[in-house]
Design a protein around this nucleic acid. Structure first.
Length: 958
RNA sequence: GGGCGCUUAGCUCAGCGGUAGAGCACUACCUUGACAUGGUAGGGGUCAGAGGUUCAAUCCCUCUAGCGCCCACCA
């Protein structure tokens, strides 16, 4: 006996254990050695993370694909694993250290710190995997990988070295986006533009001195969002002030300390006479040139722009063009974003000594950039060089993790020549080898790759893949896959350069400790996304030529969110094509983001995450999964409502109860049941409907229309099978008149339920697997878990005559129920059903279905008459007139009114159809089948109108 | 400044050239032997607005309004 209700929690753990025992998700099962493989790689979640709604959606969709293909006999590898998530993880551990008031990472040193991170990984890693299992993700968990595993690290080193040798990885000194909080470089993609708008206004002409305290208050809230206008005094060749001033505007006053030029546009007449002159930089005293450069936009600011090559990407370029005029980078900030002056040799170079530097240094040296900002403004105002301050809305770059303003900063970093790698990646999508679904994401992909910049891959962090580069005292840099190789290369280089004698080299080679002390390894680690970019082949064992790599690469589909198209998808394309000479995946399915109620991206830092595990606890994993699938229409973000999940929990209950009903009515599986041999119309009908639902579901899954697939299953199970097949079957199941029909119906129900479990399995794996097992306890033993199939065999055709018969019965029952309800007749009021001059077919149908009619339409008897009994309510159902003799029960005036409404409706329809059919253009230009369809509709409406009119007339006399 | 998307029932959303749909909510009725996490019936929509294309437009095109996202060199 089945339990009275579906206990999701109990079933989930039982079924999980079953999958584990049977190794159902294992790739390369021997019996599928000859099967076509199907492979996906999971977007690896942060190893120390927790499952959020985005993961739940992403993995539900992947699981639907994996299970569907597995049930269809494919050898499925869904490759799982986790990501070390460099900055994110290091950040967590550093925060925990700070919270515990323990020494920070620099104090404890690299080795000790890394131990702490590994400890944290050991402690919290694996939670996400457990959560994915709770969701039902059918990954081959035996193949789980981690981006810092030895194997994957080997792949990373090999790729880095190879790219270096190909000239596609290089070290360069240029401006990078520097995160002063984490004190590391970050890539362009990790920079978010945030709009800032200030609220302070002041002009020198206002007669009021600058109220620095008031400005300070405003800046304390938001240091950005103001435009400051500075006057720079123009000097003559002798360095004497001419009395002219040139006004520049800036949003970052503190960078003026590093100004080395002022640029104006060569066409700007206002400044034509000043080009070639110099200005004396206030507070600093440095003489800097006024240069003509096209970068300067006469429309913006004052048309004259201060040039700070060390702290602005554009200025850096302008500076390169005007190096001869002295526009060199002078760095005035340190790694933490503090003003750095005292020991700054470059800063004082060429500066007259009579300036009051002591005062400047006292005011700003060592001050945070935002503190310095206010002080510089104050000093400029006191010296009379501040012209005005105005609020100015503009975008300010912030680190996506640190959320602090990033600084363009001049450093040595490693770069990947993304432009070169991007070409094949673009080509592969352009020629359709890889396709995006929905297709419109391809434009996003093209736009980014076509304008791609060098990818800064070095990070001044400790948690990650340390860059395999070693430096020697004799100035060499050795990029090698291993320490030994690097040492060998260094010694050879030392000999070649003459920095080492053969003897010295031999000595070093014999003394590894001394060698290690001589060579210094690059301390930086690689961007997390560098290792993620290799995921589709590194997880398959590359650089070894493994059988898995051969069998499963390229993967079939990648399922991911649009937010990581650039971070991840594009880079996997680049690396896959470069290192495997082959696309990493054929399809890229881009799903929506699950957003919070305001449409904002869910993130831990915002604290707006909905916990999927809580929903699973409350409604079951199946309900959550079904909800996500049903809502995953292409092209729109998902706002999840709990009511929806509850609705699909009810759906699970419905299925459970339908299965119980089957059990109670002896619907056991019959060995060798052949759908083709079924005779009863009702059974043939449901088998046809089941086949249709299976085809619809399969088609929808294969084209990534998850919502259509879910809805097809939902409708078939509830609205077709439960509402009609089971209801119509009750008289046969619960009667004793026709044993053969009963047995056939029982067998059919068992068969259709099996099909339902299978159709449902990709969406609701726990419930379906459990019911499959329960139903498998009797009859022929199951070959294995449902997870391994089979997908319902298709091929039962829906017979038109049967369709018409069942359709008529269904409509008739509906009409009777409707009219009773509408006329205020109690459902249980005694009334018989009279067929008025029925066709032979209707008569036999009615006879055959009389029991069902009695039960479902609540009529007492089914009779036949030449004409409708006086004062009866008459219905026209698919051309057949039926009457309910309700004289005395219903108000005849109400019945007349009902018929009149009915007639009006039909007339309106006829007017619409006739209007079209009498339009010559329509007849001439519309496709024939559309015209024919309209003809049929007109005929049907007219026939219905005639019969309704007849019924209406009959009521007149009463 | 560029690009993408959205606007359909009270709410959340499907649909997409030819009869406008779902879930939830709402109303009325139903303790009928699978299921009240249920059943039956019902109310509710000039498919944002304006033009255009078409025999035919919620659907295609253009514009307008509102909302959202992504990208872009911070004067």
């Amino acid at each position: 006996m089945m339990d009275k209700s579906f206990d999701a929690a109990a079933v989930e753990s039982r079924v999980s254990a079953l999958w584990e025992e049977t190794g159902a998700f294992r790739a390369g099962r021997p019996e599928r050695a000859g099967a076509e493989p199907f492979c996906m790689v999971i977007p690896p979640p942060n190893v120390t993370g927790n499952l959020h709604m985005g993961h739940a959606l992403n993995n539900t969709l992947q699981d639907i694909l994996a299970r569907y293909r597995r049930m269809n006999g494919r050898d499925v590898l869904w490759q799982p694993g986790t990501d070390h998530a460099g900055i994110a993880t290091q950040m967590v551990v550093e925060r925990k250290l700070a919270e515990a008031q323990q020494p920070d990472r620099r104090t404890m040193g690299r080795e000790a710190f890394l131990e702490r991170v590994w400890a944290w990984k050991a402690e919290s890693g694996g939670a996400i995997v457990q959560q994915l299992k709770r969701l039902g993700a059918s990954c081959d968990w035996s193949r789980e990988r981690f981006t810092l595993d030895a194997g994957l690290s080997r792949a990373v080193a090999k790729v880095f070295v190879q790219l270096y040798r190909d000239g596609l990885v290089y070290k360069d000194k240029r401006l990078v986006n520097w995160d002063p909080k984490f004190q590391t470089a970050i890539s362009d993609l990790e920079v978010l533009q945030v709009e800032c708008k200030g609220a302070f206004k002041w002009t020198r002409e206002s007669d009021e001195p600058l109220n620095a305290a008031a400005l300070g208050k405003v800046l304390a809230k938001n240091p950005n969002g103001h435009l400051y206008y500075f006057d720079y005094p123009v000097v003559d060749a002798a360095g004497e002030e001419t009395g002219d001033r040139i006004t520049v505007a800036t949003t970052r006053p503190e960078t003026m300390l590093g100004d080395t030029a002022v640029a104006v546009h060569s066409d700007d007449e206002r400044y034509a006479t000043l080009v070639g002159r110099q200005v004396r930089l206030p507070l600093v005293g440095r003489l800097i040139a006024i240069v003509a450069d096209e970068y300067s936009d006469p429309e913006k600011g004052t048309g004259a722009v201060k040039i700070t090559p060390a702290h602005d990407f554009n200025d850096f370029e302008v500076g390169k063009r005007h190096e001869a005029e002295g526009a060199r980078p002078i760095n005035v900030l340190d790694a933490e974003g503090r003003v750095f002056l005292k020991d700054n040799v470059a800063f004082f170079e060429g500066v007259e000594s009579d300036n009051d530097h002591a005062r400047l240094i006292a005011a700003v040296d060592g001050a945070d950039r935002f503190v310095a900002r206010l002080r510089i403004v104050e000093l400029m105002a006191l010296a009379g060089f501040l012209a005005r301050i105005e609020p100015h809305a503009h975008m300010v770059p912030h680190g996506d993790r640190s959320n602090v303003v990033v600084e363009p900063w001049l450093t040595d970093q490693w770069y990947v020549d993304a432009k070169t790698l991007a070409e094949p990646a673009l080509e592969a999508v352009r020629d359709g080898r890889t396709q995006f679904v929905p297709k419109n994401w391809e434009k996003t992909y093209y736009d980014w790759l076509e304008n791609i910049q060098p990818w800064c891959v070095s990070r001044q962090l400790w948690w990650g893949h340390q860059i395999p580069a070693w430096y020697s005292p004799w100035g060499g840099c050795y990029v090698e896959e291993s320490e030994d190789a690097a040492y060998a290369a260094a010694l050879a280089d030392g000999l070649e350069r003459g920095a080492l004698t053969q003897e010295e080299a031999d000595g070093l080679a014999r003394d590894p400790a001394r060698l290690a002390a001589t060579l210094r390894r690059d301390e930086d680690v690689l961007d997390t996304w560098f290792s993620s970019a290799l995921w589709p082949f590194s997880t398959l064992g590359w650089p070894d030529e493994t059988p898995e790599l051969k069998r499963y690469y390229p993967t079939d589909v990648l399922v991911t969110g649009f937010d990581i198209i650039f971070f991840w998808v594009a880079r996997m394309m680049m690396m896959g094509l470069h290192f495997q000479n082959e696309i990493p995946f054929r399809d890229v399915y881009i799903h929506a983001l699950v957003r919070d109620e305001k449409g904002a991206k869910m993130s831990k830092s915002k604290g707006n995450v909905i916990d999927p595990i809580q929903l699973i606890d409350k409604f079951g994993a199946d309900a959550l999964r079904f909800t996500l699938a049903a809502m995953a229409a292409q092209g729109r973000d998902i706002k999840l409502s709990e009511a929806r999940v509850e609705g699909y929990r009810n759906f699970a209950t419905k299925i459970w109860n339908a299965s119980r009903f089957a059990e109670m009515n002896g619907c056991a599986r019959v060995a060798g049941f052949d759908p083709a041999s079924v005779r009863e119309p009702l059974n043939r009908w449901i088998l046809g409907e089941a086949a249709r639902a299976a085809a619809e579901t399969a088609g929808a899954i294969e084209s990534y229309r998850f919502n259509d697939a879910a809805n097809a299953v939902y409708r078939f199970v509830w609205s077709v099978f439960c509402d009609w097949h089971l209801e119509l079957a009750k008289p046969v199941l619960q009667g004793e008149t026709d044993a053969a029909a009963k047995a056939e119906t029982q067998a059919t129900i068992a068969y259709v339920l099996d099909a339902i479990y299978a159709l449902l399995h990709p969406f609701m794996p726990f419930l379906s697997e459990e019911l499959w097992a329960i139903k498998g306890e009797r009859g022929t033993p199951r070959a294995g878990p449902l997870a391994l199939g089979p997908w319902p065999a298709q091929g039962v055709e829906v017979d038109e005559a049967i369709e018409a018969e069942i359709g008529w019965v269904v409509d008739l029952i509906g009409e009777i129920r409707s009219v009773k309800s509408e006329m205020g007749v109690s459902p249980s009021a005694p009334v018989s059903l009279v067929l008025v001059s029925p066709s032979a077919r209707a008569q036999s149908s009615a006879a055959g279905w009389s029991e069902a009619l009695k039960r479902l339409a609540r009529v007492d008897a089914v009779e036949t008459a030449e004409v409708a009994p006086a004062g009866s309510v008459q219905l026209v159902v698919r051309g057949e007139v039926v009457a309910l003799p309700l004289a005395g029960v219903v108000d005849l005036a109400a019945e007349r009114a009902r018929l009149d409404r009915e007639i009006d409706k039909v007339k309106l329809e006829i007017v619409k159809v006739v209007a079209k059919l009498s339009n010559d253009d329509f007849l001439a230009r519309a496709p024939d089948e559309v015209v024919a369809e309209h003809e049929e509709r007109r005929e049907a409406f007219e026939e219905r109108l005639a019969k309704l009119g007849h019924a209406r007339e009959r009521l007149e006399g009463v």
